[in-house]
Computed example of a mutant assay.
Amino acid sequence: MITPRAGSVVFQNIKKQFGSFTAIHDLSLTIEPGQLVTLLGPSGCGKTTTLRMLAGLEHPTSGKILIGGKDVTMLPANERDVSMVFQSYALFPHMSSLDNVAYGLESSGLKKKEARERAEEGLKLVGLGGMGGRLPAELSGGQQQRVAVARALVLEPQVLLLDEPLSNLDARLRRQVRTEIRDLQQRLGFTAVYVTHDQDEALAVSDRIVIMKDGVIAQEGSPRDLYEAPASAFIADFMGEANVVPCDVISVEGADATIRIGALEHRVPSRNAKPGPAKLAVRPNSITLEPASGAAFPGQITHAAYLGDHVEYEVETSTGRLFVVDPAVERALAPATEVAVGFKGRGIAIING
């Protein structure tokens, strides 16, 4: 039976320079055994460099990396007890699926018969039992990715690394395969470090998300924490879009604060805010629109787009343009409609930066 040994991962004050350019600045991060942690961020933020250092494909300029309590900072990739699933799958095109999965086992010295038995087990684990004789070209993109996952898992690594594993798949397959990866990780309990630039993907698969920007950790936490309580305008906008608008905090009472935009008042979690000017992150689906004039927070629809199960609006207000997502398709509002803007109870947060 394939039983990956879940190991911890620790980055201690990691710095990585390429010549005069510093890609990673003093990064410290701990990943507990059995967690799936996603490194998320825009291109150039340092997430892939961090993964490559963990894999042993790059070495840090300073600091330490520990896997399962062992210092692996300067060890080569083949001595780290990790396996990697690449964006490009990296399958041998002339070898069958079974041979691709068995290749790493045979290279590590396992007898061919035992290697092939474990490879068969690995293919069954990812739902490809009986398909070991097919070449990669005879498989769909999703099936090829499952072969790559099986090849990594049969080595029973302490940590599974996944580098943009779904980026070559279409939208429907991405949803399917990400669900399969998450189910497999929870069932086997292995530690996984997952790199993506896709926010929905990160929200769907992660125990924790680490958002990186310019080589540092901008914020980390559970998917719900990052979505509902972003620490900055960058996090709010990166995690699923947000309208960032100025407001005034007019009172704070324990865990709640009352904010004002124009003449509209609304209660939100205080998040250590103090009375005075502040910024508010408002999710597009947390805004309500009602036809009205002379409203407490008036606006005018400048654009409306019907997208089947919802309508997207752009609304011009005194605080700037708002992006609104409204599921009420049966009463779609036309451009130039004067509206009263309101807020729902969730998806609204005071931000500090």
Rank of each mutant, 00 (worst) to 15 (best):
I2S: 03
V9P: 02
V9L: 11
V10R: 14
I14T: 04
K15Y: 08
K15S: 13
I24G: 00
D26K: 03
S28M: 06
T30L: 03
E32Y: 05
L39G: 01
G41S: 09
P42E: 00
P42I: 00
C45M: 07
G46S: 12
T48H: 06
T50V: 11
A55V: 09
L57M: 14
P60Y: 08
L66Y: 04
L66N: 01
G68P: 06
D71V: 09
D71K: 09
V72L: 04
V72I: 15
T73C: 00
L75H: 10
P76K: 11
S83A: 15
M84R: 02
L91F: 01
P93K: 10
H94S: 14
S96D: 10
V101Y: 10
A102N: 05
G104P: 04
K111N: 15
A115D: 02
R116W: 09
R118N: 03
E120Q: 14
E121V: 07
K124C: 04
L128R: 05
G129K: 11
G129N: 10
G132T: 10
G133F: 09
Q143R: 12
Q145G: 09
Q158G: 15
Q158H: 08
P165E: 05
S167H: 08
D170E: 13
R174I: 12
Q176H: 13
T179W: 08
I181Q: 09
R182W: 02
Q186W: 03
Q186G: 00
R187A: 11
L188T: 03
F190G: 02
T191I: 08
A192P: 02
V193G: 01
D198Q: 08
Q199C: 10
A202C: 08
A202R: 03
I209L: 05
I211R: 00
I211T: 12
V216N: 03
Q219F: 10
G221M: 08
G221R: 07
G221L: 11
Y227E: 11
F234P: 08
D237L: 01
N243P: 01
S251K: 13
A255V: 13
D256I: 12
R260Q: 15
L264H: 10
E265Q: 13
V268W: 10
S270T: 09
R271P: 01
G276M: 13
P277Y: 12
A278D: 05
K279Q: 15
K279G: 06
N285G: 07
N285C: 11
N285I: 09
N285K: 15
S286R: 08
I287G: 00
F297E: 02
Q300D: 03
I301Q: 01
A305T: 14
G308Q: 07
G308D: 00
E312F: 06
E314D: 11
E314G: 02
V315D: 04
E316Q: 14
T317M: 06
V324R: 04
D326E: 09
P327S: 06
V329K: 04
R331L: 07
R331E: 14
L333G: 02
T337E: 12
V341R: 02
G345R: 14
R346M: 13
A349K: 00
I351P: 10
I351A: 05
